[in-house]
């Protein structure tokens, strides 16, 4: 579904992505992991067109997406930091995004699921960090899209919402959607991911299932295999 070939991105003198190749099949949950500054967010943002790569090609369903914008109607995105216009109400924000997409949205069910009915008329500037993140999740899941990209989806969530989030992700997977996740919470990744893409110094270091990674690094769990990889490269 996503085909990335020799992708390069520099920020000033810093090379963040170096000749990165990656192909992601349709359907399933892919966890993009890597140490801080390894290019996870840059990779995800390149697919979304928020970051403009220096060279290389990104294709979704065989079509190049560089410089395009229509394809994003079929992509849902959960940004890492939830920060909205402070004087709009939750309801107005939801209407705004629905207006822009012009697509059917399942927002009412999600609003109930995360219990934010009582905040609908509140201004976004008055919400707590956790509630903002719930609004953020509603925005990311309310449209029916083939590709769902989640950047640190668990930040600031209470345990109950975390369970709901996992259920939502499982639901979308069952519908055959492709889901890309970055997260630092290892237990969350272990619980949801089908495939692991491990980035190191702007390149794909490993791509495969969790079991493959464990055998390759000869470790008992994900946490230790990641530690093993990092020790091996930085020691």
């Amino acid at each position: 579904m996503i085909e990335i070939t020799s992708l390069n991105k520099k920020f000033g003198k810093m090379e963040v992505l170096k000749d990165l190749d990656l192909s992601i099949m349709k359907g399933g949950i892919f966890a993009v992991l890597g140490p801080n500054g390894s290019g996870k967010t840059t990779l995800i943002k390149s697919v979304l067109g928020i970051v403009v790569p220096n060279s290389g090609e990104i294709k979704i369903d065989g079509k190049s997406i560089l410089g395009q914008f229509d394809y994003r109607n079929n992509v849902n995105y959960l940004p890492q930091i939830a920060n909205f216009p402070t004087n709009l109400s939750v309801k107005e924000l939801l209407t705004m995004i629905k207006d822009i997409r012009g697509k059917n949205a399942a927002d009412e069910r999600l609003i109930k699921l995360f219990g934010i009915q009582e905040y609908l008329d509140k201004k976004l500037g008055h919400l707590s960090g956790g509630t903002k993140q719930k609004v953020n999740i509603v925005l990311a899941f309310m449209f029916d899209s083939e590709l769902i990209i989640l950047d640190e989806p668990t930040s600031g969530l209470d345990p109950l919402s975390m369970i709901h989030l996992k259920e939502l992700i499982a639901e979308e997977k069952a519908k055959g959607k492709t889901i890309l996740i970055t997260s630092h919470i290892i237990s969350f990744v272990e619980a949801v991911a089908d495939q692991i893409v491990f980035l190191l110094d702007g390149k794909i270091y490993f791509k495969g299932t969790l079991a493959d990674l464990l055998t390759q690094t000869k470790q008992a769990d994900l946490e230790h295999s990641i530690a093993h990889i990092l020790e091996g490269t930085y020691a």
Binding site: G49, I50, Y71, R72, P79, I100, R101, L139
Partner: peptide, 10 residues
């Protein structure tokens, strides 16, 4: 951050 969210829209 909001601009980022808007940039991810079609």
């Amino acid at each position: 951050e909001f601009t980022e969210l808007l940039l991810a829209q079609p």
